[in-house]
Nucleic acid binder design. Structure first.
Lengths: 145, 145
DNA sequence: TATTGTTATACTCTATAACTATA
DNA sequence: TATAGTTATAGAGTATAACAATA
């Protein structure tokens, strides 16, 4: 008896989840290294240098209340990682841009988060390439859907 | 010029992280469906039926303070999903066991969490099997390390 | 006296509601 | 009057410290 594709997919997905679960402390760890809360790390890394957003847009993107965006951005501003920039066309709107220090911190944090587990090196280069290709394909499909 | 293995591994890991990122809302969603906080869901699914632990052991496992374990277990007990069982050998120690309702809830929640994204079906069965095999290998290596 | 777990309390994170400034 | 963001405030979640019961 052969498995149906959905069951094979379920096995594969379960392996992804279980692997992530075993690494879930990493995020908290990185936040502590930088003296930030996990929420502030999440905020900092989602501030894209080439696509500065306004407070309101951040609230939607982060799926939280506008008042909480104020709270998060306040701390990032205190840390010198971001600053509010009133928009030219409408002075109510404030765009959040990363400072040079913020850019540096953000990319250092991303490096730490993307740091692969040692165990990944047990795979061959061919297996690693196949893995990347497969998961990228899935993510692109997910983004479309 | 060919890439070094560590760089290929970094690409692979990044693809895992990015994929998970795109699904991070799922956990919160499931928690809401069950009228639980994410913390309580995390607690419930980590209570293994075949390996009941005491409060103190849960505090280490969950990397939180003992007083917070009290808080979490209180809610699970109120919901009827778990109960405290004073240990025979030392009546200070309380072992937390899942009730029948807790067992049912736990496995239903796990089913929801393990539910694969539609997009995974874009991969062939062979690709899915390779994915599972590779990630399982990594996780086993990580557990050893 | 030392240890397991709880209670009292305070601090952090997050949301809701009232407010200010601009449009 | 409506909208962008902030301030005041209250509710969860989490920790620290003092405590009770048992060892």
């Amino acid at each position: 008896m052969t498995k149906r594709k959905v069951d094979v997919a379920a096995d594969a997905w379960r392996s992804v989840i279980d692997l992530m679960q075993s690494r879930k402390h990493r995020f908290l760890e990185v936040a502590q290294e930088w003296g930030l809360t996990p929420g502030h790390v999440q905020a900092l890394i989602s501030l894209e240098p080439e696509n500065a957003l306004a407070m309101g847009a951040l609230a939607s993107s982060w799926k939280c209340d506008a008042s909480h965006v104020t709270f998060l951005v306040d701390r990032l501003e205190e840390k010198g990682y971001a600053k509010r920039q009133p928009a030219k066309h409408d002075r109510r709107v404030k765009t959040i841009v990363l400072t040079p220090a913020g850019l540096t911190a953000r990319s250092a944090i991303l490096d730490r988060l993307y740091e692969p587990p040692e165990a990944l090196l047990e795979l061959s280069v061919a297996e690693l390439e196949a893995l990347t290709e497969a998961l990228t394909k899935v993510r692109l499909a997910a983004d479309r859907g």
